[in-house]
Design a protein around this nucleic acid. Structure first.
Length: 681
DNA sequence: AATGGCTGCCC
DNA sequence: ATTCTGC
DNA sequence: GCAGAATGGGCAGCCATT
């Protein structure tokens, strides 16, 4: 149907219009209706106030700018709680209690009465509030957006010396808080709710980037600025998803190749649709959203998926995704998985890749000018010539890194080439991209390597290759479509053309532990009114203690969440048992009696600064483990209740220590395992 | 100058 | 990251 | 199968406090 116009003619989009859409979207779950509502919002904006389209869109996806510009609000839950408390004149305790009950900070801000000039205004009762409270002008989308941006730009503590020697301290947190409060008092009806959620960084209305992008495409097809195409509007009186399909397609390519709304939106408004594809082309220097892989539960899934196709297996390295760009003019950038600019973290990579010198030491072969390559940066032990764990990589400094001061060396494992010498390779088959990658770069030991691969279609070979990858400190395998149309590079897609196989996905392998539930955390959002996460412990029979090991918050079906809540609410205790061993920073919202054992799966064990499992038993060369550190789990998830086990029969501290030791031994001894044939493919 | 809490970003 | 769920 | 929303450990860096 034609847009329901609830925006009157304004020079700017009222923030209320946006919030109204959010409210409607939040109330429904049907995807097509959500799409329709969002499309109508954008159509209205295009028609009435096209200059606000970009800001409207950014507020819909809850971002301030393209990811690679790296501007962040720097506001979290604590600051918001404080801001809400101060704005409402209520105590933190009250705010926290409300938060617990509603599971939504937005609701907390919306429901509470605001105190202003000694008069209490009730936001729910808009009639009584209207007269006085609404003295402030209604918020507009550009205004809210620019204030959010200002908040993000506030930084640092500065000390200014005023006349007569008075010292004034500007605190960035206080300034941010001031801006938030300023917005809050101007909010009406539901605006505070969505404003707070924007500040939290999660809109949680069931509308996120993919749908917003699709809605944008629909809107610009149906509505051109200043010339509503009535006929077209009538034609879609019957809502059919497939009628819109061309619109989706036409916008998807531009966005996947040039994921920057600052560039796309003006082009959408100005240019014809045909021209858009020309304007929005892959551009070195602007990061692509990396292609992602589907998890695989069994090796047989690989054969099912790739039956009748050629595919190839690669090691899955446990490091940090690095999309490396080099432009013709020599400028270079390293981007992370989430398109953050990591160039300052990797001066060593920049130096090596950018350098001209003796060909023997260069990663880039002569003749290779511009490129975009997809890689994994992995911590590297130069003495042992082996891969170090992710936890080591994560200790690398991130800002203003000087090459001389680098403590954690990195080896870059390249596995794809998306752009080469002025030409996009996104639509080329993977076989060709890999060939070009190998033709254009060369391996330098301990610095740059190609991801190890094996082309095979035999399940036993895959099994063996998987085991070898794990021996060599990798996470497992990536299995990729090798040839044909389906092997192209699909930015931002979790494509079925790439599968990942990790040992912990496979049934019966991986670290499974039986742990005791000793605490719980209130759920939020769709987990309001049940516990959203739990605190788990292992058992130390010698000391008769339960030692905390991890929180857990995934793997539960909705039914399981209900069931657990129902069960544990009768086992809540006022304070922790004296035989609970826990760190100050890991206290749950409620403590529980030790009455149930859960089977839990994890990818790895880690040295923990917070948890206490096997404390005093942890020793490994590289990670300086002091006696106060315990063990925790990487990627913990709930598998099932172990009703057959009593709490005292849970995995013991000693076993936890053993698991860790085994893992560490593997990391230390097998680094070199069977790699003397490094160039043997 | 040291410490600890908060935040954002890796996985 | 992993996992679950409505469409 | 997609898109969205729940939730995990742990690191550096920033800021406020002491």
């Amino acid at each position: 149907p034609p847009p329901k116009i609830y925006i009157l003619y304004h020079s700017r989009v009222p923030y209320a219009a946006l919030c109204k859409t959010f409210e409607r979207v939040e109330a429904i779950t049907k995807r097509i209706e959500i799409l329709e509502l969002t499309t109508n919002l954008f159509r209205t904006v295009i028609e009435l106030t096209p200059d606000s389209l970009l800001e409207t869109l950014y507020l819909c996806i809850n971002r301030l700018c393209p990811d690679y510009e790296g501007l962040e609000l720097g506001i979290g839950e604590s600051l918001l709680l404080k801001a809400i408390a101060e704005s409402t004149g209520r105590s933190m305790a009250q705010i926290k209690a409300d938060y617990k009950d509603s599971g939504d900070l937005g609701t907390v801000a919306k429901v509470l009465a605001f105190l202003k000039d000694g008069i209490e205004y009730d936001f729910l009762n808009s009639r009584s509030a209207q007269k006085t409270l609404f003295a402030a002008k209604p918020l507009t989308v550009p205004q809210v957006f620019s204030t959010l941006k200002e908040i993000a730009q506030i930084t640092g503590t500065s000390v200014g010396v005023l006349r007569w020697g008075f010292i004034r301290v500007y605190r960035s947190q206080a300034k941010k808080m001031g801006k938030i409060k300023g917005l809050l008092v101007a909010c009406r009806e539901n605006e505070a709710k969505y404003l707070i959620r924007s500040l939290e960084g999660k809109l949680r209305v069931g509308l996120a980037e993919k749908t917003v992008l699709s809605a944008l495409a629909h809107a610009v097809v149906l509505t051109r600025p200043a010339q509503v195409e009535e006929e077209l509007a009538k034609a879609v009186g019957i809502v059919s998803y497939w009628l819109f399909f061309p619109a989706i397609e036409f916008n998807e390519q531009p966005h996947s190749e040039l994921p920057c709304y600052n560039l796309i939106v003006p082009a959408l408004l100005k240019d014809s649709i045909d021209k858009l594809k020309e304007v929005c082309k892959m551009t070195p220097g602007i990061p692509l959203k990396p292609m992602l892989a589907h998890p695989t539960k069994q090796l047989s899934e690989i054969l099912d998926r790739f039956e009748g196709h050629t595919f190839t297996c690669e090691y899955k390295y446990d490091g940090e995704r690095a999309q490396i760009h080099r432009l013709e003019d020599g400028r270079m950038t390293v981007y992370s998985r989430n398109s953050e600019n990591m160039s300052n973290k990797y001066p060593d990579i920049m130096e090596k890749l950018g350098s001209v010198g003796v060909w023997f030491f260069m990663w880039v072969k002569t003749g290779t000018t511009s490129f975009v390559i997809d890689c994994e940066a992995v911590a590297w032990d130069h003495e042992k010539k082996s891969i170090l764990p992710f936890q080591v990589l994560s200790t690398r400094k991130r800002k203003d890194v000087k090459e001389e001061e680098i403590t954690v060396q990195v080896c870059v494992f390249a596995f794809d080439c998306l752009y080469l010498n002025g030409e996009s390779l996104l639509h080329k088959p993977f076989a060709m991209r890999r060939q070009l990658l190998h033709d254009s770069f060369q391996e330098i030991e301990g610095q740059f390597a190609f991801a190890r691969f094996q082309d095979t279609s035999n399940i036993e070979d895959i099994q063996t290759f998987l085991e070898t990858s794990i021996q060599e400190n990798c996470e497992g395998l990536m299995v990729k479509m090798y040839d044909g149309d389906e092997s192209s590079y699909e930015p931002s897609k979790r494509s079925r053309n790439w599968l990942k196989v990790k040992k912990d996905y496979l049934k019966g392998i991986g670290d499974s532990l039986d742990l005791v539930v000793i605490g719980a955390f209130y759920g939020r959002g769709k987990r309001t009114s049940v516990y959203g996460a739990y605190l788990l412990a292992c058992y130390n029979p010698d000391r008769e203690e339960y030692q905390t090991i991890t929180k857990i918050g995934t793997g539960f079906s909705e039914q399981a969440l209900q069931q657990h809540y129902g069960f544990f609410k009768d086992h809540v205790i006022d304070c922790p048992k004296r035989y609970y061993v826990f760190g100050e920073g890991t206290k749950p919202d409620v403590w529980l009696e030790p009455v149930q054992v859960w089977e839990v799966l994890a990818a790895d064990l880690s040295i923990s600064p917070k948890y206490q499992a096997a404390v005093g038993h942890v020793s490994v060369g590289r990670l300086l483990v002091d006696s106060a550190k315990g063990i925790s789990l990487r990627f913990p998830r709930f598998i099932r209740i172990r009703d057959d086990k009593k709490p005292e029969e849970a995995t013991s501290s000693e076993q936890v220590a053993e698991f860790y030791q085994r893992q560490a031994n593997n990391e230390q001894s097998n680094g070199n395992g069977g790699v003397d044939d490094e160039f043997d493919y």
